[in-house]
């Protein structure tokens, strides 16, 4: 009886360790979904902060673009995880980026603009690495496609952020 139950669980594809049962997808894929989701949330939160704080037209235009573009990339990511039967991406700022947002929240004026461009350059460089790697090596086709589509968007953001950051004397 016990053996039969165990066998039917195996047939149904239910893994026997509870942790694995809660977390579909490979470790590589789960880590990608988390990193990409957190990166989108970070960009959206920084953009809201920038729109509330900055009067600089270029900062504001960029922040509006971040809301549009990362709204789009996060929707694409969420749709792909749903199609692949994975947990949806987190709608949370990651622990490693939370201190960046906290620092930005305390700045004003030109210091704010300078800090925003510097953080945007850093964050997009990190995000680009994540998306490029998964686009090249990811094991889930739907998500590889999402990562591949995000790469040129993030490259454009990165170029703009690095140009603005350098023009304001950030190293």
């Amino acid at each position: 009886m016990k053996a039969a139950r165990a066998a039917s669980a195996l047939i149904a594809g239910v893994a026997l360790t509870p942790l694995a049962a809660q977390e579909p997808g490979s470790r590589q894929t789960r880590e990608f979904v988390q990193a990409a989701g957190e990166s989108d949330t970070f960009e959206i939160m920084e953009a809201h902060t920038a729109l509330a704080e900055s009067t600089d037209p270029q900062v504001r235009a960029f922040a509006q673009q971040m809301l549009r573009d990362h709204g789009q990339t996060s929707r694409a990511l969420a749709d792909a995880t749903a199609r692949a039967g994975l947990k949806p991406p987190p709608m949370a700022v990651g622990a490693s980026q939370a201190p960046l947002l906290a620092a930005l929240q305390s700045l004003r004026g030109r210091d704010f603009d300078r800090g925003y461009w510097r953080q945007q350059a850093l964050a997009h460089r990190a995000a680009l690495t994540v998306e490029q790697r998964y686009a090249a090596e990811g094991d889930t086709p739907a998500l590889r496609q999402v990562a591949g589509a995000a790469v040129p968007i993030i490259q454009a953001h990165l170029a703009m952020a690095e140009r603005m950051s350098a023009s304001l004397g950030n190293s």
């Binding site: 949330t41 939160m45 809201h48 902060t49 509330a52 700022v93 939370a98 947002l101 700045l107």
Partner: peptide, 17 residues
């Protein structure tokens, strides 16, 4: 007590979001 920039994303930095 908080700048407008901090206010609009207030608490986003916490682990509970």
């Amino acid at each position: 007590g908080a700048s407008q920039g901090k206010l609009v994303t207030f608490g986003a930095t916490s682990a509970l979001g």
